[in-house]
Design a protein around this nucleic acid. Structure first.
Length: 182
DNA sequence: GCCAACGTTGGC
DNA sequence: GCCAACGTTGGC
């Protein structure tokens, strides 16, 4: 299992919107590096749902990938600002995954909070001028973000976790940071 | 293939 | 609202 961070402007689509929707295609990504990360995602991967352009910006919740990458519908939609005239159904250019809500964080983990976490020091998210909207997160970064929020993932299905597991620390396993993919 | 111009992102 | 950083476009 891998971990990711997805950016979204909460005024457009925030974590509460994902909870209401129950499931959402993560479409409209039009950056090749971000697209390539989408294509690396597997069902079951967990994502930090990051609110960008917010006051303050930060991680608001955890989402799960429920469908691996497939062609982004909006690239073919003449009514969409995400239309790509060079894309065809035979040769799609852009991809999306489906995500579902897992749990809201007990409190927002702000950008400033992340800057204070040693595990996050080398994240592209914190790099000056970084605009990447989909980026990988290490198990240690994921765990540190959850701990900063004081959130335990209580509702993940699956068998009891075994230690060591998925690169997470024993503390994270006790918090319930695991997936059904054993 | 270079690079200036432009549009967008996103924190502040 | 500002502006730095970045990606893309398009002329040459």
């Amino acid at each position: 299992m891998r971990f990711w961070l997805l950016k979204s402007e909460p005024e457009v689509f925030g974590y509460p919107d994902l909870e209401r929707a129950g499931r959402e295609p993560w479409n409209g990504v039009r950056n090749y590096q971000a697209r390539n990360f989408l294509r690396e995602m597997a069902a079951g991967d967990l994502c930090l749902f990051y609110h960008s352009g917010a006051k303050p910006p930060g991680v608001a919740g955890v989402a799960r990938v429920v469908r691996a990458a497939y062609p982004d519908n909006l690239q073919f939609d003449p009514q969409s600002p995400y239309l790509d005239p060079k894309a065809t159904p035979e040769a799609p250019r852009w991809s999306m995954v489906d995500v579902a809500p897992v749990q809201a964080l007990a409190r927002l983990v702000t950008l400033d909070d992340l800057r204070g976490l040693p595990a996050w020091a080398d994240s592209p998210l914190l790099a000056r001028g970084s605009r990447l909207s989909v980026l990988p997160v290490s198990p240690g970064q994921f765990e540190a973000a959850l701990q900063a929020a004081g959130t335990a993932l209580a509702h993940l299905p699956g068998p009891p976790p075994r230690w060591p597991f998925d690169g997470l620390s024993q503390g994270a396993v006790q918090l319930g940071v695991y997936s059904q993919l054993v």
